[in-house]
Design a protein around this nucleic acid. Structure first.
Lengths: 242, 242
DNA sequence: GGGCTTACTGTCAATATGACAGTAAGCCTA
DNA sequence: TAGGCTTACTGTCATATTGACAGTAAGCCC
């Protein structure tokens, strides 16, 4: 390590968020249309620089979450995703981005217009399709975020984070099908979900209404690790993790 | 986001490494005795600041790996672990650490003395035990690294990274037992490991010698994802991932 | 050749999974 | 109020995987 006169380089630290949710039975991500250069006008993940010297990274993530998506810290899953620090990823200089993955419950149609009303939900397939080029390396970050979500659905109770405080088993199955992009057998899904002790617990003898027979409601249970894991059929995605 | 006069704070970016290996059938980590303040004299994970403005993060990780452990980029697993950016984690100022997880094959007893001869291997249990207080938040980083390694052993072929270019099934079992801290049934292990197609492939009809019957040698196969995963018995560790 | 050590090969019961079909409970319409 | 429609569940059976356990094979040492 260098001795004394050496001054290590400084970098700008950004926090970017991959905010996923389920809308219309599709996995969607929150994107923002950039109002400033670079990539002005392009779509990007919500994010920004540290607001001040002493701001904690996860605090910054929550702040962005609130500012740009109007989402409070409750009823929301937030975890580290990774860091992205290629030297030329930002034309303004050396910017290293700390990426977080957030999963929000199904939200009402309109985007909360707290601050950035330029926010919009977009199906991830569309966001990653060639046309809507995301700014910076955000396509890569998004890809990693989706990959992470897919993996965690297998082994953790993350799926419940896509649902509201109570949900039906069908709704939960919807989550799995949308995120994994597969079709699951409802009967086996029922069996599996209920056999994992503590995954979901009955929420009152309550019911709910759509077309047919009322469904029982559940809440997320104490168990956060699924064992044995949910088995994912030949997903269209098979890659090695980061 | 702020408009013009606003200047986002800069941070110092460090790269820290959790380098794991197997020695004496125990999971060990490479630690360095710090030669400079802060935490002078304390044990710490190898790492350091970016060497220059344009250095890529993974390049910096490889550089540290080489400088502090004498490990080249070959035959070595390296992956992102996470970022650690609590405001007060480094007394010198705002330092954000990008942590990497490296897994090295079994190495000869002596520590490669390329640069920092103050490096030493230490069993992770000892490194995390109360006494040998690691500098900064390195205990947390190490804990996360171990957790990651344990998880990846289940679903990926990471275990082979602990072994040399060729290895026996027993040696591979050793890896699992040491990292997970459990005992596995050799017969079931044999069956499982060989039933996952492409996990390990025979390396010549070669053999090897210890006490008893010579063992067949294998090389890592093309398959990096294990499906179905290796099943880990009631490990002493059960936590939710980051 | 006997005894020791490590390497492997098999068997069987318990468990989890995948593939299907049938019943239950609402609402809507006639 | 009796279909008929829709969604919600409950069961069954063949198959795949796991966990538990015992026996054979192939070296070395004496």
């Amino acid at each position: 390590m260098p001795d004394d006169r050496w001054v290590p380089p400084t970098v700008l630290l950004a926090v970017d968020l991959v905010i996923l949710t389920l809308r219309q039975s599709r996995l969607q991500v929150l994107l923002i249309q950039r109002g400033i250069e670079p990539y002005r006008g392009a779509l990007a993940l919500p994010g920004g620089f540290l607001s001040h010297d002493k701001e904690d990274l996860s605090a910054a993530a929550h702040r962005e979450l609130s500012e740009e998506a109007g989402l409070g810290p409750d009823e929301l899953h937030l975890e580290q995703l990774g860091f992205y620090g290629a030297p030329e990823r930002d034309p303004r200089g050396r910017v290293v981005s700390a990426a977080y993955l957030a999963v929000a419950p199904r939200l009402p149609e309109p985007v909360p217009g707290t601050d950035a009303s330029r926010a919009c939900w977009m199906p991830v397939t569309q966001a990653l399709a060639g046309e809507s080029n995301l700014a910076f390396d955000h396509a890569e970050i998004l890809t990693d975020g989706i990959h992470r979500a897919r993996e965690k659905l297998e082994r953790s109770a993350l799926a419940t984070a896509f649902c509201g405080p109570t949900f039906t088993i069908s709704e939960l199955q919807d989550v799995y099908e949308a995120v994994w992009g597969v079709t699951l057998d409802a009967r086996n899904f029922y069996r599996k979900v209920q056999s994992v002790d503590g995954f979901i617990v009955a929420a009152g003898p309550t019911r709910k209404n759509v077309g047919g027979r009322p469904a029982r409601l559940f809440r997320p249970g104490p168990r956060t690790i699924l064992h044995p894991p949910m088995s994912r059929p030949q997903g269209p995605t098979s890659q090695e993790a980061t």
